[in-house]
C-alpha cells in the first residue's frame, strides 16, 4: 500500500473531570503518516499540546495490539472508527485522507461516566463479572488434557464467546446503552462448558441483576452491538443468554 502524509482537523471532547460539563476543542495536526495507528496520531497531537504548554488529552490505552479493550474512542459516529472488527489501536491512518475532519468522543452511557476527556469508567463491567462470571473450583494440580470430553462445536462456540475483551463498544453503539452483548458473551462461554454447569442457573440471574443495577438499558435487538464489536461477538449469544435466563426463572433454583 502506498505511503502518504496528511494534514487533519480533529474535534476532540475535552472534559476536566466527572463534574465538568466539557466541550469540543478543535486541533490541527500536520504530516501524519498513513502508516501510523490512530493512537500514534494522538501521541503526536499530545506531544504538540505539551510543547505548547497545554494539557494533553487523556485517553485509555494499554496493549495497543487489539487485545485489552482499553482504547475506547467514538470516532466520527462509530465505536473504534470505520473499520469492521477493529479496535482504535488497530485502526490505521490510511483509513483517512488529507484534509479530513475527525470527531472523537468518549463512550456515552449512564453506566460509563466520563473520568476525564476520552477516558470513561468501565468498572460496571468488572462488577458484572464479579457477580458470577467465573467458576468456583479448587484448582489443584493441572488436569490431564482431554479429561473432560467436550464437543468440538461447543468448544468452538465457547471460544468465540470468550474472545470478548470487555471494551464496551457494544454499550457505546447501542441506542439503549445495553450491555447485553457483553453479558451474553460472558454467560455463553461458561454455559457451553461442563466446568460452567454447576453454577449455570445462579450465574445468569446474578449477572443480569447486576447489569440492571448498573444502569444499562434493555436490549431491543437492533444488532448495532454485533456490527461494532471488534471481536465479532455474535448476537446468537444474546439468544442463548435469553434462553438461559428463562430457564433459570423456571428452574426454581436458589441463588
Amino acid at each position: 500500500m502506498e505511503h502518504y502524509n496528511m494534514n487533519l482537523t480533529l474535534k476532540v471532547w475535552r472534559q476536566k473531570n466527572a463534574q465538568d460539563k466539557g466541550g469540543f476543542e478543535t486541533y490541527q495536526v500536520k504530516d501524519i503518516s498513513s502508516e501510523m495507528s490512530f493512537l500514534e496520531m494522538f501521541d503526536v497531537l499530545n506531544e504538540q499540546l505539551i510543547n505548547e504548554g497545554k494539557e494533553p488529552i487523556t485517553f485509555d490505552h494499554d496493549c495497543r495490539e487489539g487485545i485489552c479493550g482499553a482504547c475506547s474512542m467514538h470516532i466520527n459516529g462509530q465505536a473504534h472508527g470505520p473499520w469492521a472488527q477493529t479496535t482504535t489501536c488497530q485502526l490505521h491512518m490510511r483509513a483517512y485522507k488529507d484534509g479530513d475532519t475527525i470527531v472523537v468522543e468518549p463512550w456515552r452511557a449512564k453506566a460509563f461516566p466520563v473520568i476525564k476527556d476520552l477516558m470513561v469508567d468501565r468498572r460496571a463491567f468488572d462488577r458484572i463479572i464479579q457477580a458470577g462470571g467465573y467458576i468456583s473450583v479448587d484448582t489443584g494440580n493441572a488436569q490431564d488434557a482431554n479429561n473432560l470430553p467436550i464437543n468440538k462445536d461447543k468448544a468452538d462456540e465457547s471460544f468465540a464467546a470468550a474472545a470478548c475483551i470487555g471494551c464496551g463498544a457494544c454499550v457505546a453503539s447501542c441506542k439503549n446503552s445495553s450491555a447485553m452483548l457483553f453479558l451474553s458473551a460472558k454467560v455463553a462461554h461458561l454455559a457451553l462448558l461442563p466446568q460452567g454447569e454447576p453454577e449455570r442457573m445462579s450465574r445468569v440471574t446474578n449477572m443480569v441483576d447486576q447489569m440492571d443495577k448498573e444502569g444499562f438499558g434493555s436490549c431491543t435487538n437492533t444488532e448495532a452491538c454485533e456490527a461494532e464489536c471488534p471481536k465479532g461477538i455474535s448476537v446468537q449469544n444474546i439468544r442463548r443468554l435469553n434462553s438461559e435466563y428463562i430457564r433459570s426463572v423456571f428452574s426454581g433454583d436458589d441463588k
Binding site: 462509530q78 452511557a109 453506566a111 441506542k175 446503552s177 438499558g217 435487538n221
Partner: peptide, 28 residues
C-alpha cells in the same frame, strides 16, 4: 416504558450518531 427508560440510559448524547451504519432505522 421500555422506550423511555432506555432513552434515560444515555444522558449525554453523541455529537455524531452512528445512524444507519450499524443498524436498521426501523429497529431503532
Amino acid at each position: 416504558m421500555l422506550t423511555f427508560q432506555n432513552q434515560k440510559m444515555r444522558p449525554v448524547g453523541y455529537e455524531i450518531n452512528p445512524g444507519n451504519k450499524s443498524s436498521k432505522w426501523y429497529s431503532r
